[in-house]
Design a protein around this nucleic acid. Structure first.
Lengths: 202, 202
DNA sequence: GCCAAACAAAAACGCTCGTTTCACTTTGGT
DNA sequence: ACCAAAGTGAAACGAGCGTTTTTGTTTGGC
């Protein structure tokens, strides 16, 4: 009742590429099967349903995205560049061989009016990770707390850091969604805005 | 071979509400028919296909959006508020009785891997209008041209205005797409960023 | 080299969808 | 009151989808 790992990878490669460039509903399971060079019986021995395959492809994509992002952060020299590294990661991720027109997670959220629980969970996990990581990256960039702020309960992150983090999240989300308006959209605009925000938050 | 206007409106109401909240592919034509209280034969006498109905609903929604936006601009007191009025319009449009989870045009672009020409045209028209209007609203907000800039060919809009306009477009797009991450997302964050950008462009 | 597990190929099932057709009824302007 | 245009209701179509089943064939560890 199992599936070989190489087969699973080929299925996930095909699913990722097809679902997130052509759309999930627009991609019949047969297209995935053909691309992966696998029979239908094998797919359904590895994944109980199409939705489960979607969820698994999202899961793997999330891990690869975090890897790409971490690598970009590691290349950065200072705190500001580390926060801006998310845009480098967006560039890197866009240029991968396995592509998608825009963000697979936003795309999936957009397709499902109400998503099946496995899929909704995968999308939510990506959003949460994005937000909390951006808030952490923003923390060293905000001016130290005033005496007033210091009296507030300390919940781990400064509210000024979480605000800057949420602003960065909106920029990242906007940059991704802009790819729907113009397919060749680059990260320059979002990166420029981020620089202004960081400068004015210091 | 025609259709009564009241019937057309009921069909467009149903199509708008269902397509753009549940998703186009997820909404069978029968659901539109039932919601509109109309028979299938009538729908297909008014619209040659489901795609044509989608395009017509987008077209009407575009006009209503421009109306809402113009009304918000008219309420504004100065140039800065006129540029920020797009966020008021986003709030107003969101609270309409006929709703959508996020932007109907981005949602449609996201659903169709490659959209049929009528639909692609409607989406592109909305994006173009958004961009050109935002650039025009940004024009009075940028500092007057330097002597260097004055020597460049005058194509109607200052490149600094079009840059600010494009930044506003990214903010609007980001605000809309953020609704996919958290359904209750409000325009405060995008509006705040816009204020910072306007201040630093002056 | 054996044998169970993994796989291929293809057909079939049941369901849903977009669209058309048909026979009939309602509407509204003159 | 009449009649063409507009609309109903239901049935039927053909196609495509996700999934299962069946019959064999290949693979890889002991």
């Amino acid at each position: 009742m199992a599936i070989r790992e190489s087969t699973e990878q080929r299925l996930l490669d095909a699913a990722d590429d097809l679902f997130f460039t052509r759309g999930i509903a627009a991609t019949p399971i047969d297209a995935v099967i053909e691309r992966a060079g696998v029979s239908a019986a094998t797919l359904y021995r590895g994944f109980p349903s199409k939705e489960a395959l979607v969820a698994a492809a999202l899961e793997r994509r999330h891990l690869e995205w975090i890897e790409t992002w971490d690598a970009a952060i590691a290349r950065a020299a200072d705190d500001e560049e580390r926060a801006l590294a998310v845009f480098d990661a967006l560039d890197d991720f866009r240029d991968r061989p396995i592509g998608s027109r825009w963000c697979a997670f936003l795309g999936t959220a957009a397709e499902y009016g109400d998503a099946p629980p496995e899929v909704a969970e995968a999308v939510r996990r990506d959003s949460d990770a994005l937000r909390s990581r951006l808030r952490n990256l923003a923390a060293p960039l905000v001016a130290p707390r005033s005496r007033d702020d210091r009296r507030r309960p300390d919940d781990g992150t400064d509210h000024r850091a979480s605000r800057l983090g949420d602003e960065l999240l909106l920029l990242v989300t906007g940059d991704l969604a802009m790819r729907l308006r113009e397919p060749g959209h680059r990260t320059d605009t979002a990166r420029g805005i981020a620089r202004v925000l960081i400068a004015s938050a210091r």
